[in-house]
Write a protein that binds this DNA or RNA. Structure first.
Lengths: 346, 346
DNA sequence: GTTAGCACTCTATTCTTGAGAGTGCTAATG
DNA sequence: CATTAGCACTCTCAAGAATAGAGTGCTAAC
């Protein structure tokens, strides 16, 4: 990597420019750096260094007589090796905790609240992806008959997540029979991860192995129908209108393309979960997210762990020019917070 | 009302202007009307009539040398007495039906799908308010123990709506006891509207009357806690980004104020339900909606009926300059459609 | 009552101009 | 030899001026 070619001055200048640009949203001139950062160098020298950095691809020029702006590559270096951890203040931590205090500890509310907290404290968009169900462990299953052909299956997960599902049932199934099936299913399947249950439900051999002498046609049918649910992660988004106060989104068409994407929940879900690393925080800068219409946005995301191996994702979407150290701390702290919440609530 | 003062020519001119303005989004000149509508009048005469209409408050002038634009009052007259029913085409009706075809008939999906359909066909914002729970009839109740202090209450409504709720329970309640309580509650409360159940649950006298010799401390507590749920209507919104293609929202600040409102789900819920007439369609023009930030928007809404007396609301939010006849037909047809769906699904 | 004609008003566009910001380069400096 | 002062050059941005065009309001004629 050419990164090695950077001497410490270049690093310092790049950092100063990123800092300054993030504050002002305006191209940074050599003068500005001389004034604001006491680097002991003249403007001319800085100009030379800046020209070097530009040639290396870390800065650009909107036009000849304008200051410099970091490129995505420049941000990459900044995020990877330049920026320093910025601890959240006590007030900020308290703000996050308070956000959860009022919630009823109910699964959906935690998700919703998290997206609100993230957006409120970051002043960007807060996004939360509910954990993927197929890793979830089934705690209990309740079958409620609706009419002669349908029942409601309520799946209570170990995480506290609840999934309701209308399911077709064999026509001549009495309520007592349904109740009996319900009991057997709980006995045999509770405690298993959904993924495994799904495999069982679709494989006659495994089905036989699990249910043994209890196995009957209705049981097989009910099991199959109940656990045939498609993978669906819920997406909670909040703070979209924060983008309006960003100067770089002053023109309608820029914000339009962004909002068109935000309305596609599935796309946002993909965005947050694609190439997700198992744990820890990750920063996608600008077009790295690979999503058309979001080239001007960066994403700071982190997975969170709900008891068991289930993973969900939270993230903040903001302009490429965002205060990375702060946002990273926020996302880090909040994801830890959720994991803790789930830990203690069970 | 001064409405009576309008002779048929004034009506015709007002209608022409509304029509024309809705198509072009540009102030309408006397020339334009002469060219596009064969009224057998000269531009000069039209100018006179337009001046009259302006004095009456139905038109305005952006500036001296511009054409006329309808005022809210002008739209009011148009909507109330001028516009003619516009039947949906067969294709449009089919489009709406197809939108529901894929859905699993599950309550939440119908709601969600409706907002999508409304926005897709109207090219504006589609909004759906789930029916108010307190009018809903409880079909069945299921209590699932979570831990020693909490249970999950699943309320299945006659409409197919399902409400999950984490509820505190008395500490030393055995699973068997909970099951027994569950059975008794279903026996005594199923079939009653939630509103009534809530009254019962909070009044010792009524409680005694309903449960008779079954009444015990745990039953009273569980009943109270389960039905103490706040009134919460879900809001489903889709198509917000359609506003970007409206020429009158070309400036960022106008669209910003709108989006800030749209993010407040409670406010949208109020907006759609305030002064709602029991049945039938209603049009709120411009600032009539009384919502700050939405002065440039009109709302076409209609309640829909889910078996029983529960009422929900659907609506379309668009710019004041919207194709009222078409949108009214869409909302009318769709609300009928939902009512039918619920009727047959049970 | 209707209409033709015309003066008047206001907007929107284009072009010009000048100021200001910032660079890149060159030559001088320690 | 790295650093810096100085200066010419480039480009943007804001303000002003000029022009074209659209549309009205009024008056006088039909």
């Amino acid at each position: 990597m050419t990164t090695l070619a950077l001497d410490s001055r270049k690093y310092a200048v790049l950092e100063a420019i990123v800092n300054c640009y993030n504050r002002t949203a305006e191209p940074v001139s050599s003068q500005k750096i001389v004034r604001d950062y006491d680097m002991g160098l003249s403007a001319a020298t800085l100009r030379n260094t800046m020209a070097d950095l530009e040639e290396l691809g870390y800065l650009t020029h909107p036009h000849t007589s304008a200051g410099r702006v970091p490129t995505e590559q420049g941000y990459r270096v900044y995020v990877d090796s330049l920026m320093t951890d910025q601890k959240l203040s006590r007030r900020e931590k308290q703000f996050i905790r308070d956000g959860y205090a009022s919630s009823r500890r109910d699964f959906e509310e935690i998700m919703e609240q998290t997206s609100k907290i993230l957006s409120a404290i970051s002043h960007h968009i807060g996004v939360v992806l509910s954990p993927e169900l197929h890793e979830s462990i089934l705690r209990r299953l309740e079958l409620i008959s609706i009419d002669s052909e349908h029942m409601l299956a309520v799946l209570l997960m170990a995480s506290g997540a609840v999934k309701n599902q209308v399911v077709s049932i064999p026509k001549d199934l009495s309520d007592e029979e349904l109740y009996r099936i319900n009991r057997i299913l709980n006995e045999k399947l509770a405690g298993l991860p959904l993924k495994q249950i799904r495999q069982i439900s679709q494989d006659p051999v495994k089905l036989k192995a699990v249910f043994d002498q209890h196995l009957s046609d209705p049981i097989a049918t009910v099991t199959r129908n109940t656990f045939a649910l498609e993978q669906e992660t819920h997406v909670y988004i909040d703070g979209t209108s924060n983008f309006f106060s960003q100067p770089e989104f002053g023109e309608v068409q820029k914000i339009e393309s962004l909002f068109r994407v935000l309305e596609q929940k599935e796309q946002i879900a993909d965005l947050l979960s694609s190439q997700q690393e198992p744990l820890g925080i990750q920063v996608l800068i600008g077009s790295e997210n690979g999503c058309e219409g979001m080239e001007m946005c960066s994403i700071v995301r982190s997975s969170y762990r709900v008891r068991g191996n289930q993973l969900g994702t939270i993230g903040v979407i903001g302009p490429t020019r965002m205060a990375y150290p702060r946002i990273v701390s926020i996302v880090k702290f909040t994801s830890q917070m959720i994991s803790d919440l789930f830990e203690e609530s069970l």
